[in-house]
């Protein structure tokens, strides 16, 4: 599962999410190795928030992340390519409308 280039390679991999400020969403910033959840959180603090990047951290076992795979890219994403009516671009904004 780990296979990282960072040494022993026996610790599992964790995905790290940082919330930069109150009111913002947690954003994926990278991954790291740790033997368990408590240390994953602490490692994330040391590796990813050294420069005041965040006010909150999530760590998630990488093995628990269910990801789409490249070979389904066609069926997953291409059908959206020509459906421009899904974008709010067909509306003209009347003159004088504010706060839009």
């Amino acid at each position: 599962m780990s296979g990282g280039a960072s040494g022993g390679g026996e610790w599992p991999l964790w995905e790290v999410f940082v919330r930069a400020r109150r009111g913002m969403a947690h954003v994926h910033v990278g991954s790291l190795h740790a033997p368990d959840a408590d240390l994953a959180l602490r490692n994330a603090r040391d590796v990813y928030t050294r420069r005041q990047e965040g006010v909150s951290l999530w760590v998630v076992p990488s093995a628990e992340v269910v990801a789409s795979t490249p070979d389904v890219r066609g069926s997953f994403f291409e059908p959206a390519a020509d459906k421009d009516y899904r974008h709010p671009t067909h509306y003209t904004v009347p003159d004088g409308v504010q706060h839009l």
């Binding site: 960072s6 040494g7 022993g8 610790w11 790291l32 190795h33 740790a34 602490r42 490692n43 040391d46 590796v47 050294r50």
Partner: peptide, 12 residues
Amino acid sequence: APELEEDVALAN
């Protein structure tokens, strides 16, 4: 350190 992450922690 045993792992890169611990390396960073000890340096901090």
